[in-house]
Amino acid sequence: MASLIETTACEGLLPVATQDVTLGELPFACITSVAPFDGRQDAVAAALKAMGLGWPGPGQSVRAGDAACFWAGRDQAFLIGAAPEGLAGIAALTDQSDGWARMHLEGPGAEAVLARLIALDLRPAAFPEGAVARTGLGHMMAVLLREGPQSFQIMVFRSMAGTAVHNLHQAMRAIAARAAV
């Protein structure tokens, strides 16, 4: 029997911090991709409602305690931190828990750091709390969520964790260096 080593996606890479911003890894959570079958959108929304959540509209998220449902693309959502109860048979379900590196960027300079890597207007008026975007982080496909006025959740493919941490840390240091001038 092979002896496998259990590590998180960013083990040994995070946390990192500069004066204004910290980047850490989020604790492991169950991630299920939910893609409703044709014509079953209402049933899927009802099943998510029964879990205290709901179907998120484009660019939105729904949160209930530790569980959350992020919009993740056309007719697709990610159910995070909860088992997909009552969804079997009405939606295509894929366990992606190990597929993503989930990070948490926080601090007064968080927006400025992301502005170096993401071509989106991230000011609170355009990207408020709970807003989700599927967009590019550098050259990587990413899921971005605003958690609060100065904090963001970032998801990238697990295989790109090293590059994402490198890019984000480099941007953090550049922002800190500029502030020090």
């Binding site: 484009p58 660019g59 056309r74 071509a119 989106l120 975007a133 599927r134 967009t135 590019g136």
Partner: peptide
């Protein structure tokens, strides 16, 4: 139509 204005590189 879903995401709004996005950069051409996406």
């Amino acid at each position: 139509p879903l995401c709004g204005d996005r950069d051409r590189r996406e």
